[in-house]
Simulated scan of single mutants.
Amino acid sequence: MSEPTTEAGADSAGTTAPRRGRPPTTVDGLSVPERLVETAVRLFSEKGFERTSVQDVVSAAGVTKGAMYHYFSSKDDLLHEIYARVLRLQQENLERFAALDAPVAERVRRAAADVVVTVIENLPDVTIFFRSLHQLAAEQQAEVRRARRRYHETFRAMVHEGQVAGEFRAEVDPELVVDYYFGAVHHISVWWRPDGALSAEQLGEQYADLLLASVLPR
């Protein structure tokens, strides 16, 4: 599990308190938090989350423990941030697609393809996180579930919009559409390889085609 520290600055609810002090410095062109997260991704992938210590991470990142604890209260925080940054990117992209002045089918297509591409582009992050999710503290697991639920609800709202507009089949449960599609997307980390027949973009387009085929009127 985590390696807590009294330097962490966590409140009584277990949430991380705002850090104060100098702004992030850089190490080899990355800010200290970015370098720590990138290093954690590599070490968690090579050694596993449990077998990687905070000292392993800071040594490989070329920073001190004090510098790490300025930004992350524990090893759990690093694991959480690995996936949270992917979720933030996907949520931003989804909200941009949802707000487009375009037919709902086109917006759904673009969002569906994007989530495949962003999973593949961040495959080490996604793979490590789902492999180690059970080791996060309960409140951090709940936070991840809330963030994922927000994404799914935004996506589901577009499916429902298409049904109300008569563009999508009304008899299909939008919740089932979301669960079915994202179950398939989450499985990508199990089988996709960069030397395979399809690029990330090609796979995204094919997944999006399959999704639309399931909701468009027959």
Rank of each mutant, 00 (worst) to 15 (best):
V58C: 03
V58I: 09
A61Q: 01
G62V: 04
V63H: 00
T64N: 02
K65A: 10
F72E: 06
D77A: 08
D77Q: 09
L78E: 01
L79Y: 07
H80C: 05
H80G: 03
A84K: 07
A84D: 11
R85I: 13
L89V: 10
Q90N: 15
E92F: 10
E92Y: 08
N93E: 12
L94G: 09
E95S: 09
F97N: 07
D101M: 14
D101Y: 12
V104I: 14
R109F: 14
R110K: 09
A111T: 04
A113R: 06
E121K: 06
E121R: 11
N122M: 05
L123R: 00
D125T: 10
D125G: 08
T127A: 12
F130N: 11
L133V: 15
H134Q: 15
H134R: 15
Q135A: 14
A137Q: 14
A138L: 14
E139C: 09
Q140Y: 08
E143A: 15
V144G: 04
R145N: 15
R146A: 15
A147R: 11
R149C: 11
R150P: 04
Y151C: 03
T154Q: 14
R156L: 11
A157F: 00
A157I: 07
Q163R: 00
A170W: 05
E171R: 13
E171W: 12
